[in-house]
Simulated assay, not measured.
Amino acid sequence: MADSTPESRTVTSADVARLAGVSRATVSFVLNDTKGARVSAATRERVLDAARRLGYVPHAAARSLRAGRSNLVLIPASVSAMGRLASEWIDDLHEALHRRGYVTVLHAGRFGDPAEAARAWAELRPVAVLALDGDRYTAPTADVLARAGVRAQLAFAARPVPGTYTIAFDHRDLGAAAVEHLIASGRTRIGVIMPKERGLAAFAEPRLAGAGEVAARHMATVVPVELAYAHEDAAALARRWAELGLDGVFAYNDEYAALLLHALRGQGIAVPGEVAVVGADDLVLAGLQDPPLTTVRIDMPSAEDIAARLEELVESGSAEPAPRIEVRLVRRGSA
């Protein structure tokens, strides 16, 4: 029997069944990893080998129709702009969900209207939606998705979202923790870095608000300072630092903090002598700076825990409440 089909024809599960010498039902059981199906290890390997030799790939939409639901978990792609911490966490989540039979999809669309975003997400008919920037998630958003058959909706948000499993996480806490520390160390005029990169305002603005709330209680001043993640922009900012009159800065996250730290030192500005610098995320690079970066650590739940909660929401429609995500200051040499 030939090991391949003509290039002009799409390979089907029937081709795999013929090459493996089994029924199409057995091919379906093996390739869909059907729970409870009695297929011997030898038969399973024969089917997988035939699929590899033929280059057969299961049809996701057809599989969803047979199963009665999708296996897609959609994550709005704005998380990709959040930095290394979020990227690594999403990688871990992808692996945890994959082990449970789900496929993670990042949706790259950017929408000003949450309802428009929900309609675009719903077109893919995901089984679940996970929003890290859940403060833009609304009750109408949740309703659109529920009507489209989305079985699980999980959002990280400062306040509960009706119709959505919400994990409490307020970005204002990061700005508040950073500025509390800067004020306690004697700083009174504090800059808050606002990244120019598209997609980060949703996270930067509440961090600025949290910083401002703390400053208002202590008679300190908070000044928003725009910065692009580029050496040239950081160097230009450092050259005019004296004009700003700032003695402390919360630099949005550790990546922007490290960039600014090097630019300030390049201009001969002493850190923390003249300017105290605080980052966020507690990345490995924070401890490698000179001086090491003081940072605000986010105690994120494990990706495995979130994958388990999503699966529970998909299967039963509910899950035990999750603890609030807390932040804590990690004090090092920069502030």
Rank of each mutant, 00 (worst) to 15 (best):
V161D: 08
T138S: 11
E213L: 04
A238G: 02
G186V: 11
P160C: 06
D135K: 07
R125K: 13
A215F: 05
R187A: 07
H218F: 06
A201G: 03
L124P: 00
D173P: 10
G163Q: 02
V214I: 12
R240G: 14
A209M: 13
A202T: 13
G199V: 06
P140T: 10
R189V: 13
H171S: 14
A131H: 05
A168C: 05
R172G: 12
A152T: 01
D143L: 08
S185L: 08
Q153A: 07
V179F: 06
D170K: 09
R187S: 10
F203P: 04
F203T: 15
R172W: 02
A177T: 10
T164L: 02
H231K: 15
R239S: 15
A122I: 08
R239W: 02
A178G: 12
Y229M: 10
P126V: 04
A236K: 13
R159D: 07
G186P: 01
R136W: 03
L154W: 07
M219Q: 09
V144A: 04
V179S: 03
G149K: 14
A230K: 07
R217K: 04
V150D: 00
P224T: 14
A216W: 12
I183D: 11
A234F: 04
G245K: 07
F156C: 04
G212W: 06
H181W: 10
L174I: 15
E197V: 12
A177S: 10
A158W: 09
K196Q: 15
L145F: 03
A228S: 11
G163T: 02
T164C: 05
D135F: 00
R239E: 15
P140D: 14
A202E: 08
V179E: 10
T188V: 05
E226D: 14
A155Q: 03
A155H: 00
V144N: 06
A211Q: 06
A184W: 13
T164F: 00
P162W: 09
A128D: 01
A242E: 09
P224Q: 14
A215P: 02
P206I: 14
G191Q: 05
L208N: 05
A215Q: 11
L132C: 02
L227T: 13
D143S: 14
R198A: 13
I167L: 14
V129A: 02
V150N: 00
W121D: 14
P162N: 12
A234S: 10
E226M: 10
Y137W: 15
V223F: 09
V223I: 09
A128I: 00
T166L: 08
A152Q: 00
T166Y: 07
G191W: 07
L237V: 04
E205K: 04
R217V: 03
M219I: 07
P206W: 12
